Computed example of a mutant assay.
Amino acid sequence: MGEPQAILVPLNRSAIFLVVTVHEGGEDGVRDLLADVTGLTRSVGFRVPADRLTCVTSIGSAAWDRLFGGPRPAALHPFEELRGDRHCAPATPGDLLFHLTAATTAACFELAGKLVERLSGFAEIVDHTVGFGYFEQRDLLGFVDGTENPTGAAAYSAALVGAEDPDFAGGSYVIVQKYLHAMADWRALSVGEQERVIGRTKLDDFELADQAPDSHVAMNSLTDAAGVARQILRANMPFGDVATGEYGTYYIAYAADPDVTETMLRRMFLGTDGAAAGHDRILDFSTAVTGTLFFTPPVEFLDNPPPPADVVPAPSAPARVADGSLGIGSLR
């Protein structure tokens, strides 16, 4: 298995999400940047080691074929719009996703600026969202977010591609959506009503025993034919703007198989046989405004991306032996 990008690290308190579209003719510049992302992250992070800066880089389906030749991830495809009776999960543009996290916004901001500089003339930022850790890992609706995330070996199997696609083992599929919350409507509910919508208690974060079939928890609980839970790894973050009154959750879910996340979303937006409302009740208060699917390749792929299909790589020059004590130059 290839070395995964920083998907399985503990959640940080700050994040910046950049969704990018690549200009026609900008592929070479973007490919050069992709090979340098690890080094740029290391350079910024070395200055503030306590911030634990990470950058996870992912590529969309259409951009993959423009950027790289050779095999492609087996399950990579565009995000599919979901239109239910009342709610819609739109599909929106996105060729690249940069998911930056750190203990402070400053480290994310510094690295984001360097990425944007390198993308100038080659690509366009179509979404820039600054996420922040809220009280007790809560979202802006007041509930703890991410309680059911798998840990340990379960997180590896849920989030990372394995032997089923050996060319891309260690990679992951990631879906992102921005949800805007109708805070006035939400606050008009009693705490008990809010708990029935979510399916958990608000104060102490326990799952309700009498789960409504259209609660958020029920809609996102999946099992396979053997009764084993099908899981994903979420790294959701709140975001907001007090000046405009825009408050929301940036939903970001990594999975070894994108069908797991997509099945959850289909249940949320299209309903299930047992859900009287025909959709996840949280959608009456949270509106999806973006939706994109990407593949997160292993580190080795990102550091040395293959050329596009119409380019034949030049033969490698023989390696030069360095005899100096620092591996520089020769003693002869």
Rank of each mutant, 00 (worst) to 15 (best):
L97M: 09
V176N: 10
T21R: 11
A309N: 00
E246P: 07
A229Y: 02
M219I: 04
N304H: 13
T21M: 02
A243Y: 12
Q5N: 08
A163K: 13
G39K: 09
A15R: 15
I7S: 07
F285W: 11
A91E: 14
S330D: 13
L222A: 01
L302F: 08
E136I: 10
G291D: 14
I328H: 03
A153C: 09
G278E: 03
S172L: 02
P315C: 05
F109E: 09
Y251N: 13
L270W: 01
G133D: 07
T104L: 07
E117N: 12
V48G: 07
F294P: 03
A62S: 15
A106V: 05
H77S: 15
V22G: 10
G70Q: 08
Q211Y: 00
S190M: 08
Q5L: 06
G278H: 05
D145R: 02
H23W: 04
V299M: 09
A103K: 00
D185N: 13
R196E: 10
L293N: 06
T57D: 11
E27V: 01
E148Y: 00
G142Y: 04
I252N: 07
G162R: 02
Q231F: 02
R267P: 01
G113N: 09
M237E: 01
A276V: 15
A319G: 08
E81K: 15
K114V: 04
D284W: 05
Y247K: 00
G327Q: 07
V130Q: 14
G162E: 07
S61V: 11
T223M: 11
G329Q: 01
A225P: 00
L8C: 01
Y247V: 12
M237H: 05
M268L: 04
T151N: 06
F46P: 03
F168N: 03
A309S: 12
G199N: 02
L326Y: 10
A6S: 13
V9L: 12
A153Q: 14
R118Q: 13
E3N: 14
L222H: 04
E117A: 11
D303S: 12
L33M: 04
T147Q: 00
S316H: 09
K202P: 05
F143D: 06
E300C: 07
F46H: 14
M268K: 14
P90F: 06
D65S: 13
A256W: 04
L283S: 07
G199P: 00
V37I: 15
S325T: 09
Y250E: 11
P305I: 07
L115N: 00
V242I: 11
N149F: 06
Q137V: 01
A6V: 03
P4A: 06
D65P: 08
E148G: 05
P49Q: 11
E124I: 12
T287D: 09
